[in-house]
């Protein structure tokens, strides 16, 4: 194990070498176990999705039969989830980008209040938001029955992530100064927005977009309450299958979800890695 020490690491004095080694090994094992706790079940579910008979185990052979069955039963939920995720993304960008910019520019008490309100859904369980929406709009039956109802829920739930991630970048690149710089060169507000603000906000926009799509694809708490039999999304279908399908089908369905979401998670990790662990530093 080639191990390098950062300043925080214990200083090794000769008699302590052994103890330090042991400590390192113990911590490593602990961390590996923790990672195993998170990863093994995910691996199991993926495996189960392509196993002929999970009760018997992999010995029973591998098959794509369950995946085919999932496609037959649930293709519409998968497509609908994509449509809703993309629509959510578009709406959150269209609302979130100008809103974040305006909030950042103003920075006064009104702006802070608006920011509070926009980010409030972060602090309220999806269930409560869904109930509130049902109570207010449940009677508009056309709206209630369309997937737009779910879209509204997803936008409310994901907008804070978009706004926050853009505002974090706005603060980090000192956008006001760049804006003034462009203004001093004669750029109109629109030109400034297009040439300076948007390009410099891109990392935040990208991170926010990944988050929004990921969350929308996986959103269950709100959607379960808002959906109708004709507007089921993937996670809703998943819950269905967990309750009523054999384990292999449920697993295959979960596998489909993993296939959709893992590239997004990886991309998010990559972005976070480039922006430092917390995304705050450059």
């Amino acid at each position: 194990m080639t191990e390098m020490r950062r300043p925080l690491g214990p200083i090794i004095r000769r008699p302590h070498v052994l103890r330090a080694r042991l400590l390192f090994a113990a911590q490593l094992v602990f961390t590996l176990l923790l990672a195993a706790f998170l990863i093994v079940p995910a691996g199991l579910s993926m495996l189960a999705g392509v196993t002929e008979n999970y009760f018997i185990g992999v010995r029973s052979g591998l098959t794509l039969r369950w995946l085919a069955q999932v496609w037959e039963l649930y293709a519409d939920t998968i497509l609908r989830s994509f449509v809703i995720a993309i629509a959510t993304l578009v709406v959150t960008i269209v609302i979130g980008l100008p809103a974040a910019y305006a909030l950042h520019r103003r920075g006064d008490r009104v702006a802070r209040l608006v920011e509070e309100i926009i980010t409030l859904p972060l602090a309220i369980p999806g269930l409560a938001i869904a109930l509130a929406l049902l109570l207010s709009y449940g009677n508009f039956s056309d709206f209630r029955r369309s997937w737009l109802f779910i879209l509204v829920g997803h936008v409310i739930f994901t907008l804070p992530f978009m706004v926050r991630s853009i505002m974090a970048v706005l603060a980090a690149v000192n956008i006001n100064l760049l804006d003034e710089g462009a203004a001093s060169l004669g750029a109109s507000p629109w030109q400034r927005f297009r040439d300076v603000i948007v390009p410099n906000v891109k990392p935040g926009l990208l991170a926010g977009s990944l988050m929004v799509v990921t969350l929308s694809l996986g959103e269950f708490n709100l959607t379960w309450m808002l959906h109708t039999p004709l507007t089921k999304t993937l996670p809703v279908g998943l819950a269905d299958s967990y309750a009523s399908m054999r384990l292999e089908v449920a697993s295959a369905y979960t596998l489909v979800f993993f296939i959709m979401i893992i590239p997004l998670l990886v991309a998010m990790q990559f972005m976070a890695g480039r922006g430092g662990l917390t995304g705050g530093r450059r």
Binding site: V173, N174, L177, L178, E180, G181, A182, D195, V196, P199, N200, K202
Partner: peptide
């Protein structure tokens, strides 16, 4: 500008 305000993009 004091901190130049050059456009990073």
């Amino acid at each position: 500008f004091q901190s130049y305000a050059l456009f990073p993009n």
